[in-house]
Amino acid sequence: MTSSCAGGRRARARRYLMCRPTYFDVRYAINPWMDPHRPVDTARACAQWEALRALYRDLGHTVELIEPLPGLPDMVYAANGGLVVGGRALGVLFRHPERRGEQAPYLRRLARLAPGGVYRPAFCNEGEGDFLPVGEMILAGTGFRSEPAAHAEAARVLGRPVHSLTLVDPRFYHLDTALCVLDDDLVAYLPAAFDDAARRRLATLFPDAIRVSEADAAVFGLNAVSDGRHVVLSAAAEGFAADLRTRGFEPIGVEFDELRRGGGGIKCATLEIRA
């Protein structure tokens, strides 16, 4: 399904994998956003997640589910569970031991969703947290989680050119917290989250990119999901939303702040299954 709008932007029906935050909690701190001393409202997290799933369905997208498992409080961040391109899936190898229990469940689920098969990685990568396809290429983050050797591995396994980008601000520890793919030839990003080489590469690859403010990035505004027309993003990222309207997109702001307590946002909760 495709649809157009007055600004010429086209939405394409997507297929997403999500995990209900039934067991969501902040029991440890593996990123600057996590504070185990602050109680988590799991019911509120579930309500925000359900609203996001309903929105995707209303927009015409398909939502697949993976069963949440006790003892894996970060399993809701499905984007970290793998990368699926051209029907082939690359599994994950988490840097922090607290999350390694998620690897096998996501690998099994992706084996049923990816007709081209699933590859078990040899090097540390954290799925769509650090791998973001843009058209025929893949942008790949490193610096905090995924290791550079995983970028070459992804290029070989998935048959796509991979462009490495080094992150330098620990608040933006995954690529999907510092950069958002809006369409096959357009991205938005926070320049200060990257080193000089990465900024030069992004400027060359995407000269028309939207540069987002630190204030909008700090409310996980870039941890957003675009179908080519609609951009689902943090309701607090008002400046980014205004920029999107100027470019012909339809931003849809949603509340997702409870799940942000774990260091993840809307994109973190959404793994795209690309045929």
Rank of each mutant, 00 (worst) to 15 (best):
Met1Lys: 10
Cys5Asp: 14
Cys5Tyr: 11
Pro21Glu: 08
Asp25Met: 10
Asp25Lys: 11
Val26Tyr: 10
Asn31Met: 09
Asp35Leu: 11
His37Met: 13
Thr42Trp: 02
Thr42Asn: 07
Arg44Ser: 07
Cys46Tyr: 03
Cys46Asn: 07
Glu50Cys: 12
Ala51Ser: 14
Leu52Gly: 03
Arg53Gly: 07
Leu55Lys: 12
His61Cys: 06
Val63Lys: 03
Leu69Gln: 13
Gly71Thr: 14
Leu72Val: 04
Pro73Lys: 06
Asp74Phe: 03
Met75Ala: 09
Ala78Lys: 03
Ala79Asp: 06
Asn80Phe: 01
Asn80Gln: 08
Gly82Leu: 10
Leu90Ser: 07
Arg95Ala: 13
Arg99Thr: 08
Arg100Val: 08
Glu102Arg: 03
Leu107Pro: 00
Arg108Phe: 12
Arg109Thr: 12
Ala111Val: 11
Ala111Asp: 12
Leu113Asp: 05
Leu113Pro: 00
Pro115His: 11
Pro115Leu: 12
Gly116Tyr: 13
Ala122Trp: 10
Ala122Pro: 00
Phe123Arg: 14
Glu126Ser: 05
Glu128Asp: 12
Pro133Val: 01
Ile138Lys: 01
Ala140Cys: 14
Gly141Gln: 07
Phe144Gly: 06
Glu147Arg: 15
Pro148Lys: 05
Ala149Pro: 01
Ala155Lys: 06
His163Pro: 06
Thr166Tyr: 05
Asp169Glu: 13
Arg171Gly: 06
Ala178Trp: 03
Leu179Glu: 00
Leu182Gln: 04
Asp184Met: 02
Leu186Lys: 00
Ala193Glu: 06
Ala193Gly: 08
Ala193Arg: 05
Asp195Tyr: 12
Ala197Gln: 14
Arg200Gln: 15
Ala209Ser: 14
Ala209Arg: 03
Ile210Ala: 00
Arg211Ile: 11
Val212Ile: 14
Ala217His: 02
Ala218Leu: 14
Val219Pro: 04
Phe220Tyr: 15
Gly221Pro: 04
Gly221Asn: 03
His230Met: 04
His230Glu: 04
Ser234Tyr: 05
Ala235Ile: 12
Ala237Met: 13
Gly239His: 14
Phe240Val: 07
Ile252Ser: 01
Val254Thr: 11
Phe256Arg: 02
Glu258Gln: 11
Arg260Ser: 09
Gly263Leu: 08
Ile266Pro: 00
Ala269Lys: 04
Thr270Val: 09
Glu272Pro: 00
Ile273Tyr: 06
Ile273Pro: 02
Arg274Pro: 01
Ala275Ile: 02
Ala275Asp: 15
